[in-house]
C-alpha cells in the first residue's frame, strides 16, 4: 500500500522556486491500476519518481506498506527500489553492450544473487514476456516493442509489488504500444500494482483509476471504466 500525505516537491530553477508537486495526498491500494495524465510540466513524472524512491519530497510523508520510507537512508532506499519496485521507461534504458538476458539479470546482480539463483528467474521473466528466443540478442538487434518487453522482464525479475511505467508506449508505434499495455495489464491482473504516467489519452483511459494533474496538483480523479 502506497500512502502519500501532503507531499511537496520544490525545484530551484535559477532564482525561482518551481512547485513541481504542491500538496499531493494519495493512497494507492495493492493491485490497483492507476494512470496519471496531464500536460508537460504538470508534475506527473516527479510524482512517479517520488513513488519510486528516486527522489525525495521537500515535505510531506510517504509510507510504503506501512513503513515511513521518506526517512530511510540512501542505501536502504536503494534496497527498497531493488526489491519492491520495478521501473519501465519510455527510452527503455537497456545497456547496449549487454544481451537481453544480461540486461534482465542486472537487478539480481545488484541484489547479490549467485548465478545459479539468477538463472531460473531470468529465464522465467523472459518466458513470461515471450522473449526467450531473443535472450542472447543485443538491444540494437531488437525492435522497439521487443526492447520494451526486455525492459519489462527486467522490471519484474525481482518480483516487485509495484510496477512504475513512465510513458511506456511513448517511443513505440501504435500496435507495439498496445501490445506493451496488454502485457502490463496482464501483470496487473496477477496482483502487481501498476502505476503508469502517460499523455496518450487512449492508453490512459484503460486504467481503472485515472488521475489528472495540473500545475503540481491532482485536479481530478476518475474511477471505474471510462
Amino acid at each position: 500500500m502506497i500512502e502519500l500525505a501532503g507531499i511537496h516537491r520544490d525545484f530551484q530553477v535559477g532564482d525561482q522556486t518551481v512547485h513541481a508537486l504542491d500538496d499531493v495526498s494519495l493512497i494507492i491500494g495493492d493491485g490497483e491500476y492507476l494512470s496519471i495524465m496531464g500536460p508537460s510540466g504538470s508534475g506527473k513524472s516527479t510524482l512517479l519518481n517520488l513513488i519510486g524512491l528516486l527522489d525525495r519530497p521537500s515535505s510531506g510523508r510517504y509510507h510504503l506498506n506501512g513503513q515511513d520510507v521518506t526517512s530511510l537512508s540512501d542505501i536502504a532506499q536503494a534496497e527498497v527500489r531493488n526489491r519492491e519496485i520495478g521501473f519501465v521507461f519510455q527510452m527503455f534504458h537497456l545497456i547496449p553492450r549487454l544481451t537481453a538476458a544480461e540486461n534482465v539479470e542486472l537487478p539480481l546482480i545488484i541484489l547479490g544473487l549467485s548465478p545459479e539463483q539468477r538463472q531460473p528467474k531470468v529465464a522465467a521473466a523472459l518466458e513470461e514476456l515471450h522473449m526467450t528466443d531473443r535472450s542472447h540478442h543485443k538491444p540494437e538487434q531488437l525492435s522497439g516493442g521487443q526492447r520494451q518487453r526486455v525492459a519489462i522482464a527486467r522490471a519484474i525479475v525481482t518480483e516487485p509489488k509495484v510496477l512504475l511505467a513512465d510513458e511506456p508506449t511513448g517511443n513505440l508505434d501504435h500496435n507495439s504500444g498496445k501490445a506493451v499495455i496488454a502485457i502490463l495489464e496482464t501483470l496487473n491482473q496477477r496482483g502487481i500494482t501498476l502505476i503508469m504516467v502517460t499523455h496518450d489519452t487512449e492508453m490512459g483511459q484503460r486504467a481503472r483509476r485515472r488521475l489528472r494533474m495540473v500545475d503540481g496538483r491532482i485536479s481530478n480523479e476518475q474511477n471505474g471504466a471510462a
Binding site: 519510486g52 542505501i75 527500489r81 531493488n82 521501473f87 542486472l106 537487478p107
Partner: peptide
C-alpha cells in the same frame, strides 16, 4: 549517464 541512472533505479547503491 543513462546507464548510471538505470543502475540506481534498479537499486544499485552509490558505493556500487
Amino acid at each position: 549517464t543513462n546507464e548510471i541512472g538505470l543502475l540506481r533505479a534498479l537499486g544499485a547503491r552509490e558505493g556500487q
